[in-house]
Design a protein around this nucleic acid. Structure first.
Lengths: 205, 205
DNA sequence: GCCGGCATCAGCCAAATGGATGATTCCTGG
DNA sequence: CCAGGAATCATCCATTTGGCTGATGCCGGC
């Protein structure tokens, strides 16, 4: 019998997953957590074979940080990331964090069940339409922005002008422009609007 | 016995809702739909008392359009909107479309059950933290953008330049600038980036 | 110790953007 | 029919933005 721990901030989704998972008789849900912190504590006590974890967990730590902490446990559960969005940056982040796989929430129940079995067996599990994208991402990894650049990008996305960003960060406009120039080059765009767009699309921010 | 039709594009969420709703014995789920179109067809045949409908339905028509169509049925079911996001524009849109209420997905199961009962009784159902916002929205309604302005706004959010928008819409740059000027005035901003930001925040796009 | 990446700043210039004002056409509701 | 909103286009002008080039100081790894 494979044991599963559910982690999702929505009670309704947890109920749905429990119903789906326990429909068969090879899987049993041993616990539910609404936050990453709770998940880590519970996993430490319950030692589930597989943790099914949402990427977005409302307040508190996110699914990736939760994955990192879970993988540090002994014995470490297989972590299967389950989410609504298929942002490239997050796929890679989850895999790098040691997740056994990544499934989109809108797949059919039996895909989830199969995913859990395969994760428990140590296999890698990727939603079909994601596998190619992940591999593509491996070949041409997302540009690595520096912390400062990400910071500038966030202000950009809030609609700030260069002058405002400069004031907020206590630097000159020239510096902001310099950061932006780097960001634009890395993201292969030539306007702040488009930079915002690709940053949001790829999950950079 | 109050009958309920579930509308959500995620099978897992539907399972969860079904489990939650049928936990008591005063409610029964008479059907499930994954799309708005399917919901309208099913509601016409099943005549549920309440339709519990997600606002985002993947491909196809959205929850608001579905609501409008459902309310046009005879007898018209009470439509309870259930979603993850609490964007102002959508709250108002759903209410205007004739929804009996609006609940966030992360509420506790019993709140959903109570909401269904109250919707069936003809009451208005609003998630507590939303009620005040809706009322506030009533007092200072979101600026009403025209269809054309929304269209321009979408291109804007994808990072398009004025020239690109002009080409796409088969108009001159002057026209695009004119639309933008109106958009900026209505949203009370003075740059495309900030326009994108408030449009996304308020759920205009 | 030196190289390279990072953050900081500067100046110049071309292009894009935003504000102001006004005109025309079309359509719709009273 | 007519007022008014919507969409279209135009011109002028100031500001902002983005591209380019180059410089400085700092720090971490080899």
């Amino acid at each position: 019998m494979t044991t599963v721990l559910l982690v999702d901030d929505h009670p309704v989704v947890r109920s749905g997953l429990r119903a789906v998972i326990e429909a068969g008789d090879a899987l049993t849900v041993v616990g539910e957590a609404a936050t990453g912190e709770e998940a880590i504590t519970l996993a430490g006590h319950l030692h589930p074979d597989v943790v099914l974890c949402d990427l977005r967990l409302g307040s508190g730590i996110d699914g990736i940080r939760t994955t990192i902490a879970l993988r540090a446990l002994d014995p470490a559960p297989a972590v299967l990331i389950l989410t609504t969005f298929d942002r490239d940056a997050e796929v890679l982040g989850a895999i790098e964090a040691g997740a056994a796989g990544y499934l989109l929430k809108d797949v059919d129940p039996e895909v989830i069940v199969q995913g859990i079995h395969r994760a428990a067996a140590g296999d890698m599990v990727l939603a079909p339409d994601l596998a190619t994208r992940v591999l593509k991402g491996m070949r041409s990894p997302l540009p690595r922005l520096t912390d400062r650049e990400i910071e500038v990008l966030r202000h950009l996305a809030r609609g700030a002008t260069n002058k405002e960003i400069a004031r907020t960060l206590f630097v000159t406009e020239a510096t902001v422009k310099s950061h932006l120039a780097h960001i634009f080059t890395k993201l292969d765009v030539d306007s702040r609007s488009r930079a915002i767009h690709v940053a949001q699309e790829t999950g950079l921010i």
